[in-house]
């Protein structure tokens, strides 16, 4: 691990200001992704700003009947929150399908949204990777890419977004609240938060330098059966090959987002209109699979069909 200096921020504003003041600074929350990558020297921050004691660790009701989730709320606490379990069960189910009990006790809402890809070549510093080293090439295209994305890919990068939580948040129309180093705040819809790789796969989200996530808000709950079905190589403690987050009313239009298949959490609102039987094909339209990951298309379609059929029955 490269050397860094360390400071503990006391407030969100102080954390954002510190990030702007110190070149090469990064926030550290749970540390479960950042420290993993720092040990491998894939991330090499020169300064760490510990945001664990800035507050933002509460889940609160909003005036419009929704929820505001502080950026430092742990994945365990969010999954176990009574209102989340009752009104936003797709989120609880997505959270508990991710990582392990130990990791969820540390992982935070903000950190989970910002976790980096699991592409084997991103992790292998001996290999070219446009995300890790812009312009170096992509070893995954033409390499071992069975787990990688089929949607939203580019010539520069085909890595899938690994978060389960973010897929549920996409189906729930979450909003990401932030504060910038100058104190300005803004709200970014989850659909615009994660970026497609395009020609700049190292730019992964809408945040500016030093911008801190303060909360994620959810609108008032949507009624219907809340489902998160995750298909993976083993039945626990593994990332998704394909996952489906869905809110399915007894009759009427279902909301659906897919994980494991896209370079960001994948939702196509226009595909949700029309019959259930054709929804998979409509969502997966434009997919560009490789020979190794082409299996994800029928797997996603069948998983979605099963989720909808079970929920409607």
């Amino acid at each position: 691990m490269k050397a860094f200096t360390y400071e503990r921020a006391a407030t969100p504003a102080e954390a954002a200001a510190a990030a702007a003041r110190t070149p090469g600074a990064k926030f550290i929350a749970g540390g479960t992704n950042l420290l993993d990558l720092m040990k491998l020297e894939i991330e090499t921050p020169r300064h760490l700003i510990d945001v664990n004691r800035i507050g933002l660790d509460k889940v609160e009701d909003t005036p419009d009947g929704g929820l505001r989730i502080g950026a430092l709320v742990r994945n365990t606490d969010l999954a176990a929150h009574p209102r989340v379990r009752r009104d936003y069960a797709v989120l609880t189910r997505a959270l508990v399908s991710g990582a392990s009990g130990q990791l969820r006790n540390k992982a935070t809402t903000g950190g989970n949204l910002l976790q980096r890809v699991r592409c084997p070549y991103f992790y292998d510093t001996a290999k070219p990777c446009n995300k890790r080293k812009p312009g170096s090439g992509c070893a995954a295209i033409g390499g071992f890419n069975r787990g990688l994305a089929v949607l939203g890919t580019s010539e520069a990068c085909i890595a899938q977004h690994p978060s389960d939580m973010a897929v549920a948040m996409r189906v729930l129309d979450a909003m990401v609240e932030t504060v910038k180093p100058d104190g300005a705040t803004r709200t970014i819809p989850i659909a615009d938060f994660h970026k497609l790789p395009g020609t700049t796969p190292h730019i992964e989200n809408a945040l500016e330098a030093g911008e801190l996530i303060t909360a994620v808000t959810l609108p008032a709950p949507v009624t219907g059966t809340h489902v998160y079905r995750k298909v993976r190589d083993r039945s626990s403690y593994a990332f998704a090959l394909v996952s489906v987050a869905a809110i399915v009313p007894s009759d009427g239009r279902a909301r659906v987002a897919l994980g494991g298949v896209g370079t960001k959490p994948w939702r196509v609102e226009s595909a949700e209109a029309g019959d259930d039987a054709g929804m998979g094909k409509r969502i997966l339209a434009g997919a560009k699979p490789t020979t190794q990951n082409a299996f994800k298309l029928p797997l996603a379609e069948r998983t979605l069909t099963a989720v909808l059929a079970d929920a409607r029955s």
């Binding site: 550290i28 749970g30 479960t32 664990n52 006790n105 540390k106």
Partner: peptide, 19 residues
Amino acid sequence: CTVIVEGRRINSCLTLAVM
């Protein structure tokens, strides 16, 4: 490396002592 910190189990390898 699992230990219990403030009543919760965590992986002690993925956190800094100073935190």
